[in-house]
């Protein structure tokens, strides 16, 4: 206990990084003065939320750079993939990182969900935040799915064709829904443009907004969930 107190004294470690960290913490008003050791441990949260956020940050930065080289038109979209691979300096790296990080993000979001569920961290008062998280999961899937079409190769074309034909099987509205999503009845240039706008503008902005809400609520609902602390809180209730 003494050691921990000493660390908190601040005087011993002073450098720009700690200052920056404190800034971050203070700016977000998220700084609870203390968190309990079990909440910090890797084995309780696996840092899944943070890791997901990390992959999303990678997606944002590589995605922005990729936008500099990409034209959402046929067949230039595919030619741009070739240019990234063969001409753009480190272009292959940008695309690979964006791709693998996207897969990691989908995977992490899923695991995050399962972990939260099994820890019971969705219980009141966090139930609405669980819904926000579920929405984020859906948006992540949509982000990945819309990005899937952009290289305009055989896999992406037929993958999206299969996906959109599922949507068309909804009775009454299905065909119309697909028409709205693709901007036509088949996957074509309009679909590519729509998927691009969704992938690069609408969905990322929505995700950023929801992540903000997600984290704000996390803080407001008592920070990181710990079964024991909730139990103790519960027992304190009248």
């Amino acid at each position: 206990m003494e050691k921990v107190e000493r660390k908190d004294a601040d005087g011993a470690i002073r450098n720009p990084l700690t200052a920056l960290a404190r800034w971050g913490a203070e700016l977000k008003h998220m700084s609870r003065d203390r968190v309990r050791e079990p909440q910090l441990g890797f084995r309780h949260t696996w840092y899944l939320g943070a890791l997901t956020l990390g992959t999303f940050t990678i997606q944002l930065s590589t995605g922005l750079l990729l936008m500099l080289y990409y034209h959402p038109s046929i067949p230039q979209a595919y030619a741009d993939m070739k240019n990234l691979q063969f001409v753009v300096s480190s272009g292959f790296f940008l695309r690979n990182l964006h791709r693998w990080s996207a897969q990691a993000m989908v995977l992490l979001v899923f695991i995050h969900m399962a972990k939260v569920f099994y820890r019971g961290a969705f219980r009141p008062p966090r139930e609405l935040n669980w819904v926000v998280g579920s929405t984020l999961l859906l948006l992540t899937l949509l982000l990945s799915y819309t990005g899937y079409l952009l290289p305009w190769d055989q896999t992406s074309y037929w993958g999206v064709t299969v996906g959109s034909s599922i949507m068309a099987s909804v009775p009454v509205l299905g065909e119309k829904l697909r028409f709205v999503l693709l901007g036509g009845n088949t996957v074509n240039a309009n679909a590519l443009l729509r998927f691009y706008v969704l992938h690069a503008v609408i969905l990322p902005l929505s995700v950023i907004a929801l992540i903000g809400i997600h984290m704000w609520r996390l803080h407001q609902d008592g920070g990181m969930y710990s079964p024991d602390s909730e139990e103790s809180e519960k027992s304190e209730q009248p």
Binding site: A79, K82, N83, Q85, F86, V87
Partner: peptide, 8 residues
């Protein structure tokens, strides 16, 4: 044609 690597 667009490739700049031997194998590709």
């Amino acid at each position: 044609g667009p490739a700049t690597e031997l194998a590709e």
